[in-house]
Amino acid sequence: MNKPSHLQAPRPTRWTLFWRTFLPWQLWRFLVINLKMLRMMRLEKKHGHKRR
C-alpha cells in the first residue's frame, strides 16, 4: 500500500492553503472558473451539436 509519507507528490505550502480560502482571491477565481466553463461550452457548441 502507498502511504502518504512515502509519496513523492508535491504538498501545498501554507501560502497556497491561505489563497485557497482567501475570500477576495476566491471571488476572483469564482469569476474566472465560471468563464472557463463558459468557454468550454462555447467550444462544445463550435465542435459538437452541429448540423451534419
Binding site: 480560502t21 475570500l23 476566491q26 477565481r29 469564482f30 472557463k36
Partner: peptide
C-alpha cells in the same frame, strides 16, 4: 485552455 483543475473555496 479548456482543461484545467484547481482547488479552492470558489469551487
Amino acid at each position: 485552455n479548456s482543461t484545467f483543475g484547481e482547488i479552492g473555496l470558489a469551487g
